[in-house]
Write a protein that binds this DNA or RNA. Structure first.
Lengths: 234, 234
DNA sequence: CACTTTGGTGACAAATATATGACAGGCGCC
DNA sequence: GGCGCCTGTCATATATTTGTCACCAAAGTG
C-alpha cells in the first residue's frame, strides 16, 4: 500500500508550501486546495486519508467545510486537523465540535505537525473494525477475517468479503450500485455498474444455506439492501 | 434509466470531437455548442445533466456563461466542469468561484475526464430525504426504501414508490394528473394522462389491507388527493 | 330515464431491470 | 511456464415494470 495522502486546505500559498514540504519529507503524498470548493472536489475525487484544514478560508469558513464533510457519509470517516492562528484559540473548542479530530495552533514546528498528524492517523487507525459484525446467524470476524453462518464456515473472495463487511455495518439501508462501487471498490475506479450485480450474486451464493439466502434483497430500480429476512412465507 | 446527457461547449471543433468520442465511449449522450449563445439555448432546450465548459470562448467568456447559468434558477442545479489550458491555471480558482463544480486542466486523459465527470455527477446526485414519511399507520422509509402499514411490509413497483413518496410529502392536497406526471414522472416525458389512473390503482391495491384502502381519494374532475381517511362510514 | 363524462379495471406486449453462466486476462505461487 | 483463484464483462435467460387499450361502472346532466 502506498503512503497516506494528506489534503492541505489553506488560502496562503507560503503556508501550503511549508506544510507540503514538511509532509513530503515525512513521506506523505500531498494534495493542495486553496478554497473550500476545490477542497471538496478533491476530497471526493482523491479520498485523502487526512485533511489539514485552515480555520480561516476566503469563501466558506473552514469550520463550515469541516461540518459539511462530516455530514456526508462518504467523507465522514476522514480525520480533519484544524489549523488555527494564535489569536483564534477560543475557537478551538468550537472547531472540535464541528467534527475536527484535532487542532494545531499556528505557528507550529514541522515536527509537531507530523507528530500530531501521525497520532490522528493512528487513532483513526486501520478502518478495520475490531468487533465481529453479525446479522442473524451470520458472523463476520474482521480480525480472523472469517465468516460463519450458524457456526459453519463460509468462504468467499476478497471482494465479496469487503462487500459483506460493508453491508454488515450498514444494514437495513438500500444502496445504489454506484454507492456500492464508491464504498466497496473505492472512489475513482472505473468499473461497470453491472459488475456489482455479479458480486452480489457471488456473495449470495456464498451465503446460501439449504438453498436459501436470507440476507440480501434486491431493491428494484435502485440497488440492493442487506437485512435479515425476519419471516419467510412458506 | 437512460444515460446522462453532457453538453460540450468549446469553440475548437477538434477538442469537441475528442471530448465527444471519450464521452460516447463511456456511454454518455453528447450535445455540442460552439459558443455561449448556442450553449445557452441547448441548456434550456435539452436540460443536460452536466456541462463541460471551455474557459475561453470567442464571444462571452466561459466564466461569464457559467455565472449566468448558475444565477438562473432553472439551470443552477446543473453541474459545470471548466476546461482550462495549462497556462491559465491561475484562473482555476476564479473558475470555481463562478460556480463551476470542478475544473480540468488541458491536456488531460480521457480516463481522467470520465472519472472527474462521474465524481461530479455522483456528487450532484439525487438527494434522498433521510426521515421516514408517515401517514396513519403508513410508513415510508427512504433510507431502507421500504414501506410498511402497521409494521407489515408492503410492496410495490418503483413508480408506485415514487408516487407514494410524493403523496406523503404533499398530503391533503389535490393534484391533477398533469401535475402528478410532472412531479412523479419528471417533466419532459410524454405519457398519457390516463396512465396516472393506472398507477393510482396499482398503488391503491398495494395499500389495501383487509379489503380497505384509506389513503387515496379521487377528486372527480380534477385528479387525486392523498390524506388519511380519519373515519370510515359504515 | 337516456345520454355524456369521468374514473376503475383487467389484460397485454414492449421496455427494463436483474440473475446467471461462461470466459479471458491478471496475479501470485509453486 | 503451468496452475488455480479472482475479477470485470458479456451474452443470454428471467423476472418485473410500464404505458396503453378496450370495456365496464359510477357520477353528472337535463
Amino acid at each position: 500500500m502506498h503512503n497516506k495522502t494528506i489534503l492541505i486546505v489553506d488560502d496562503e500559498a507560503p503556508v501550503r508550501d511549508m506544510l507540503r514540504i514538511a509532509l513530503e519529507m515525512a513521506d506523505y503524498r500531498c494534495l493542495e486546495a486553496e478554497n473550500a470548493q476545490a477542497a471538496h472536489a478533491l476530497v471526493i475525487d482523491e479520498k485523502p486519508d487526512l485533511i489539514l484544514l485552515d480555520w480561516m478560508l476566503p469563501d466558506v469558513s473552514g469550520v463550515e467545510l469541516a461540518r459539511r464533510l462530516k455530514r456526508d457519509e462518504l467523507t465522514a470517516a476522514i480525520p480533519i486537523i484544524m489549523l488555527t492562528a494564535k489569536g483564534e484559540e477560543d475557537h478551538k473548542i468550537k472547531g472540535l465540535e464541528t467534527g475536527a479530530d484535532d487542532y494545531i495552533t499556528k505557528p507550529f514546528s514541522p515536527r509537531e505537525l507530523v507528530a500530531r498528524l501521525k497520532a490522528v492517523l493512528r487513532r483513526a487507525g486501520p478502518s478495520t473494525p475490531e468487533e465481529p459484525l453479525t446479522a442473524g446467524g451470520l458472523v463476520l470476524d474482521p480480525i480472523s477475517h472469517r465468516v460463519t453462518i450458524n457456526g459453519n464456515p463460509v468462504d468467499m473472495g476478497p471482494t465479496e468479503f469487503r462487500l459483506l463487511t460493508f453491508f454488515l455495518s450498514h444494514q437495513e439501508r438500500a444502496y445504489t450500485r454506484t454507492q456500492l462501487l464508491d464504498h466497496v471498490w473505492g472512489g475513482n475506479v472505473y468499473v461497470e455498474e453491472r459488475t456489482v450485480d455479479v458480486h452480489i450474486r457471488r456473495l449470495r451464493k456464498a451465503l446460501t444455506v439449504d438453498g436459501h439466502e436470507r440476507y440480501i434483497q434486491t431493491v428494484r430500480g435502485t440497488g440492493y439492501r442487506f437485512s435479515v429476512q425476519t419471516a419467510e412465507r412458506v
